[in-house]
Nucleic acid binder design. Structure first.
Lengths: 199, 199
DNA sequence: ACCTGAACACCGTTCAAGT
DNA sequence: ACCTGAACACCGTTCAAGT
């Protein structure tokens, strides 16, 4: 009996199923064993295609972040900053459960550094000093990651009834899941606009 | 033989040793078994004083955040925002390894909500709408958490030599650990100043 | 070449049992 | 009242063995 011509596993298939599990069950919901089971395979088999779980997560993160758009700097540095931040946030909110991983370890992924390098170069070309360019880029990332992480939707909208009595100023209406998403976006836009205007 | 009058364990002692381990070995470096060993005890014994590991981390987080200062709003809302953000960042940078936990789960800790409530109320008193107050508070938290997380020091200062060729614009000097800390602080101050000025 | 079984060194948590 | 031993249901990863 000849072996089946196509193998069961490939790095691409592993990554896409892993991302689906993360989207569904959260970052903690992904284990190599569960991933293997979803692929119809034993856990050990994964290590023929993937070096470690950490490396797998890094690869997934890179692919999620490939949607970030740094093309706006050809127009104007303010426009570039805004477009970069918006597309960054959009990419992260497509797969919110992977954000804790991004925010965790060192951001030494190649694509991230490439983008940062481009952004940095554009700011220097626009007349900022190298040091200022670094700080501006950092500030932009603060707003992007801050908004992706400490969002109201995932933050504390679980049980509005608990809050009403104890926190008189907090507006109960803002904690409803539907409103929270919109509020998250508006808060991000406000922070971004204030930051860029204040530079 | 009478039992020793003072028990080996107490919630306080558990929390303080756990925080020391986190500071030394990182968030992933804390396990209930290692914590128990550091306390001269078996892992199971911890569960007489602590409900779960997650609850333990929440309690530690609350104690770290108790240093946040929201008193500045009695002066002026801009001063209040700045003082709150600075003390928040200072508290987080005293124990940077616990920040990923804070950024992770829902921020439903009582003290956090109390502070948020006070901040919110102060902004409304200053004339902002409830919705605007919520967004401003969120934006401030974006900068605080963003700066605590995606810091350059822990971010990508590990091996400057790798970067030189590949990323022409990135300033190698900014990646040295000593400079990185200072740059982190200045980036935070720049983002904070730009944000508050831009409001 | 690709996958498996079994093992190693870990986890958080529970619970009957000891003192 | 406080701690322990042993167990349960998990982890990530390795490696000889099978096809």
């Amino acid at each position: 009996m000849p072996r089946p011509s196509t193998p069961l596993l490939s790095p691409d298939r592993i990554r896409s199923v892993a991302l689906a599990i993360i989207d569904r069950d959260g970052l903690d919901g992904l284990s190599m064993r569960k991933l293997a089971a979803s692929l119809g395979v034993q856990a050990a088999s994964l290590y023929g295609h993937v070096r470690t779980k950490d490396q797998l997560l890094n690869d997934i993160a890179s692919s999620v972040l490939s949607a970030v758009d740094v093309s706006g700097f050809s127009v104007d540095w303010r426009e570039g900053l805004i477009r970069c931040a918006r597309s960054y946030r959009a990419a992260l909110s497509t797969h919110p459960n992977i954000v804790p991983f991004l925010a965790y370890g060192p951001a030494g992924r190649d694509e991230s550094l490439q983008r940062l390098d481009l952004l940095h170069g554009a700011l220097v070309d626009a007349g900022w000093s190298r040091r200022e360019a670094t700080m501006i880029a950092a500030g932009l990332m603060y707003i992007v990651f801050g908004s992706a992480l400490s969002s109201f939707s995932s933050g504390f909208s679980s049980d509005p009834a608990d809050y009403t009595d104890r926190y008189p100023h907090l507006d109960r209406a803002h904690l409803l899941p539907g409103v929270a998403r919109e509020l998250d976006r508006d808060s991000f836009e406000l922070a971004l606009a204030a930051f860029v205007r204040g530079l």
